[in-house]
Design a protein around this nucleic acid. Sequence first.
DNA 1: AATGAATGAGACTTCATTCAT
DNA 2: CATGAATGAAGTCTCATTCAT
Lengths: 207, 207, 207, 207
Amino acid sequence: MEKSKRKEMEFQHRRTEILSQAEKIFAAKGFHNATMAEIASTSGFATGTLYQFFEGKENLYNIMVSEKLDRMYLEIRESVNSQEKMIDKIEKLVESHFHFVENNVDFCDLLIRGEGLTLSDKGTILRDKIIADYFNHIGFVESIMRFGMEIRTLKSGDPRMMAYTLLGIIRSFFYYWMLTNQDTPLSDKVGCVSDIFLKGVGLELTE
Amino acid sequence: MEKSKRKEMEFQHRRTEILSQAEKIFAAKGFHNATMAEIASTSGFATGTLYQFFEGKENLYNIMVSEKLDRMYLEIRESVNSQEKMIDKIEKLVESHFHFVENNVDFCDLLIRGEGLTLSDKGTILRDKIIADYFNHIGFVESIMRFGMEIRTLKSGDPRMMAYTLLGIIRSFFYYWMLTNQDTPLSDKVGCVSDIFLKGVGLELTE
Amino acid sequence: MEKSKRKEMEFQHRRTEILSQAEKIFAAKGFHNATMAEIASTSGFATGTLYQFFEGKENLYNIMVSEKLDRMYLEIRESVNSQEKMIDKIEKLVESHFHFVENNVDFCDLLIRGEGLTLSDKGTILRDKIIADYFNHIGFVESIMRFGMEIRTLKSGDPRMMAYTLLGIIRSFFYYWMLTNQDTPLSDKVGCVSDIFLKGVGLELTE
Amino acid sequence: MEKSKRKEMEFQHRRTEILSQAEKIFAAKGFHNATMAEIASTSGFATGTLYQFFEGKENLYNIMVSEKLDRMYLEIRESVNSQEKMIDKIEKLVESHFHFVENNVDFCDLLIRGEGLTLSDKGTILRDKIIADYFNHIGFVESIMRFGMEIRTLKSGDPRMMAYTLLGIIRSFFYYWMLTNQDTPLSDKVGCVSDIFLKGVGLELTE
DNA sequence: AATGAATGAGACTTCATTCAT
DNA sequence: CATGAATGAAGTCTCATTCAT
């Protein structure tokens, strides 16, 4: 029992190491320009060994992206759920998004590049998962909006549109931040984002 | 004169045909999975013929994306500039973005996937161009915001943040539309987008 | 008559021009790295036009080398035949070889490299011709040796061996001269070559 | 230890096998007409395998020629150095040259054709090496001549010219032998060559 | 279970040659 | 006759995957 447990742990450890190196290399070179040989040697294994952990290159890529995404969404939700007030929830949403980006620049770059989303014919698997996750996340944000409307913090309106809007603004900010890679932390913009999101940019006079 | 003109026209016609087919195929399969052979045969040419129009696969891809992007940005700016009132400018901006997306689903899909942004070492050429164009576009939107502030249609604030915001919302809407590929035209959302952008989603009471 | 004659002359003129340019390009790049396109444009013709003068690339190469070789051998023989005395004949042989080399460095380089001697299966044509010409030339030199023996200027011995020897020494000198491309004219060595050839390098004492 | 040694040996064995087959094929068809596919299948490997031993076609060719040349020059020098008397040294020089030619007809044919000496721009590597080796060899022969002059076996004169001469005669004899591919062994001519070299062909009377 | 050498399919690209204008 | 755009066969090289050790 002890022994098999230790084995299991070693296995997980090795698997994680591979995924971690794979993330770096895929992020740096994209799916197609990364090679199994490089991932293997960087992880300290032989090429063939990778195939005992993953079915192949595509599978390795899928799993790496999937698991990372899962962690990201989980983190964000937990952050948001830890807040009670509507305003705080929104700020946490923005903040936790930004937090992830700041700590995973390479991975986000990979996601933005979207490399590998078009794989073999059967290769829509990852694409489908990413989209499903994204829809799911939108649903989550939507539910927050609905909550905001219930407690009359938000205008009544289509909560889904609001979700699109907020996620769009978030993405726009981190996209720009990534391209410029400024020294100022992205987190500084949290207030700005939630403010614009809630109040808009128009002068009240015009209404 | 007549003759060389006709030749020139034929040349352009063929070139355009290749670019057009290339767009479809790159969009469908991504940069790496598309083959010159397929692009050639789809365009009705032999493989070697492509090399009389373009230096190679990467060059073909770069040019196709570049030219398409140039047309897109030009279209959008002309639309916006044709309007005088601030509100109309914003609506036109949203509308012309949406219009392009609706008419170029495949290309936008390609852009979103970002495939090929990581090419050979020298292959940052395209990436750099895309980023430069994007920054340029942001600058353009920013100038509109500044104008809006001058004529006191917009709150005073950082016009660049406003530009990020608006482009982010636009992107979010068309991204979602593309994923779901709804039957409802994207243009229906123009009003919704500009409204949220100007007024925000918060209830005035909360302020 | 007049007209067809003029045509014929123009034809020859063009043909010569092509051969001349082809020589330069083949010499500079070797058979395989030279392209019909370059030969054509350098000669001021279109690619297709070359095919009205020559059957193809290999044929063009064969003819160019053949004709050049013919001229070389002819020149050498005439030089030698213009002399009456044995010693003079030998000196002229050496001198005219050297003269050709000095005036046709590129071509000789091509010959030495021997590029294109292995062409398609049927491509031994040129090889065979070169060899036949060479044998023929050896025969010519041999006849001089025989003459030298008759008039008792040369030791009696195998005249063919003597021919090999002389041509070998000549080649060795010009080969070295080409590699180093010295400023001193190759012709300076004529005396040296004929001297060694006739007297050997051994001290008489040893005999 | 045992194991890695065996691996190393197997590696060398395979490498040698490839080089050996490559030599035959390059010799038969020349650099450009030989294909990696043929070399691979002849050696009993897959195409890709060659690339684990050599960087590419040019590299394979360079190495094959280089190593062969090195062995040839080494063999010749050792033969010559094993002799003490001047005359013997010269005879050994001629003999070992002839010996190599007789046992490496294909390779010598390749060398004479010089194919591949004009490779890519960076491809002068081999050419430079061949020339450097040749110069080096000339230097070696020159030193023998100098020795011969010191012990007063040779006339005083330019030892370098003597070196050219001897190597030229040798080359001329084996070139002819190769072309005719006579049944008589080339070695029979050793005496003839050294004799002509030392005594020349002129009758003493003429001096 | 790990290794890593061998595999071989497949992609890009070149260029001699043809043929409609 | 001249043109030069189109052709397409053929060659090099890469790299995911396998399998004997």
